[in-house]
């Protein structure tokens, strides 16, 4: 019943899910349960927390995430190239260098525009 190489991954997922269940179940059996409002209040250095937690954050984070997505996709394009590289003729190098050059262009652009500067 070997489906593929991934059978083991499937088995591992099924077994690994048991780990948190068993661990938390065990702890649930033996740990004390005495909740009270003070204990359950949000931690904030001893003072009452003011306002909503879910507020807006710096847009800066978003730009970093965007640059990441672009680079990640480019990296995925490079992987099959890397695997096949030994079987490829010399022009494959040129093609990959063009791809990497475009990638570098993207990096230089975001760098120049100051999008990679933490302000």
């Amino acid at each position: 019943m070997v489906l593929s190489d991934f059978t083991f991954v499937g088995i591992l997922i099924l077994v690994a899910v048991l780990l948190p269940i068993v661990g938390l179940g065990l702890a649930w059996l033996i740990r004390p349960k005495k909740p009270n409002p003070i204990k359950q209040s949000t931690y904030e250095c001893g003072i009452e927390t003011i306002g909503d937690t879910w507020v807006q954050f710096k847009a800066q984070y978003y730009i970093y995430a965007l640059v990441f997505v672009v680079f990640d996709i480019e990296a995925v394009f490079l992987l099959p190239w890397a695997v096949a590289y030994h079987q490829l003729p010399l022009y494959a190098l040129v093609e990959a260098v063009i791809l990497i050059a475009i990638l570098v262009l993207a990096l230089v652009y975001t760098w120049r525009k100051g999008a990679l500067r933490w302000s």
Partner: peptide, 13 residues
């Protein structure tokens, strides 16, 4: 992807 990035950076800036 390069174009997308450029556009995103301009908008975000």
């Amino acid at each position: 992807l390069l174009v997308a990035l450029v556009g995103a950076v301009i908008l975000a800036r």
